[in-house]
């Protein structure tokens, strides 16, 4: 019986594992982004394709270089997390932005948003939003110039300033259009609900079609890839606050559905705020986080100088997430003398 049996592995328990791993989760998010990307391409044609590809290149290049240099145990390019960053970043860009800015922003996303913190899992801020905030601060004009959505004839036209030579000023002769939120803020004009849902408005590449984003969100929520409490908390907060204001003064404040479906709220709530790395670790914390984002969105949109505030709201709540994690610790089992009686 002493026949030496096959070399037995001496790992420790548990010996079975749930099949969902990080790579699976990351790629699920990427798959869920596909319809959003398709909507962007439908509305902005060749522009969308080019901007997405260039942003992706900008994000993947530093990630690739870094994961090579660091002799890291994980290939962060193939695991899909950098792809998410690149795609999400691209989807927040105005569809007429010079490609060189898109590339720069993609790189900034990954370098400033992720690598300096030690890479996947350690970043404090959503990398895509760091890249976007950087571009917003660096090139405010290009980042707030919107082209109208495409008609069937000009789907293959490159419109706007896409082909501006690197580091050069865009020509800015694009026929510009105003986003629904800007029209609301500066001209007090409401956009139709169907346009907001279907995406036939001016706006960032991936933010216009609220309906498709909601579907993607439902999919991710059902698969357990994202925490459904985050989008629900954000949207509910925005809805309730907007409804309250609308009720107080219906002439000054638009109906709540407008705030929910206009601008980047859906994209931010479903894809950005749900980034597990940069959101709190407890369910109670998650509620605080999402209500905080919703509150800030309404405050910035209604009382602030900017028409849109989803990006800043999420970044600000990202910044306080470590504090939330500190304050809202789970109640340890058995820390209550007699419970549940």
């Amino acid at each position: 019986m002493k026949a030496r049996e096959p070399r037995l592995l001496l790992t420790t328990s548990p010996f079975i594992k749930s099949p969902q791993d990080t790579r699976f989760i990351m790629w699920q998010v990427n798959y869920a982004l596909v319809p959003v990307i398709l909507a962007g391409i439908y509305y902005f044609g060749l522009n969308a394709v080019l901007i997405i590809l260039v942003s992706l290149a900008g994000a993947l290049l530093p990630e690739w270089l870094w994961s090579r240099r660091q002799s890291h145990p994980v290939n962060t390019v193939r695991d899909g997390s950098a792809v998410i960053t690149g795609l999400l970043f691209a989807l927040t860009l105005p569809p007429g932005i010079p490609l060189w800015m898109a590339f720069l922003g993609g790189t900034v996303s990954v370098v400033l948003g992720k690598i300096i913190f030690g890479g996947l899992g350690y970043n404090i801020f959503n990398p895509a939003l760091v890249g976007r905030a950087f571009l917003q601060a660096a090139f405010p004009v290009s980042m707030t110039t919107w082209i109208p959505y495409a008609t069937p004839e000009n789907v293959f036209h490159i419109r706007g300033d896409l082909l501006t030579f690197p580091f050069m000023k865009p020509r800015m002769d694009a026929l510009s259009a105003a986003t629904p939120l800007a029209r609301m803020k500066f001209e007090s004009q409401l956009t139709r609900l169907t346009d907001l849902l279907l995406g036939s408005t001016a706006g960032s590449l991936g933010e216009t079609a609220a309906f498709i984003i909601i579907l993607a969100g439902v999919y991710l929520g059902l698969r357990g890839v994202i925490n459904w409490r985050i989008p629900v908390g954000i949207v509910a907060t925005v809805f309730l606050l907007a409804a309250l204001l609308h009720w107080v003064d219906g002439t000054r404040y638009p109906a709540p559905w407008f705030h929910v479906f206009a601008g980047g709220l859906m994209l931010g709530a479903v894809f950005m705020a749900t980034d597990p790395v940069t959101s709190p670790i407890t369910q109670k914390g998650v509620w605080i986080f999402s209500i905080g984002v919703g509150l800030l969105v309404v405050i910035i949109r209604i009382w602030g100088g900017l028409p849109e505030g989803v990006m800043y709201s999420i970044l600000l709540m990202n910044a306080v997430t470590p504090l939330i994690n500190k304050m809202v610790r789970p109640r340890i089992y058995g820390m209550r003398e007699k419970s549940g009686r």
Partner: peptide, 20 residues
């Protein structure tokens, strides 16, 4: 220095740029 068609990076004269 950079010529008239250079697109300036406003962030560099903003506080964020100073930190960066």
């Amino acid at each position: 220095i950079m010529g008239p068609s250079f697109e300036p990076w406003s962030i560099m004269i903003l506080p964020g740029g100073a930190f960066f």
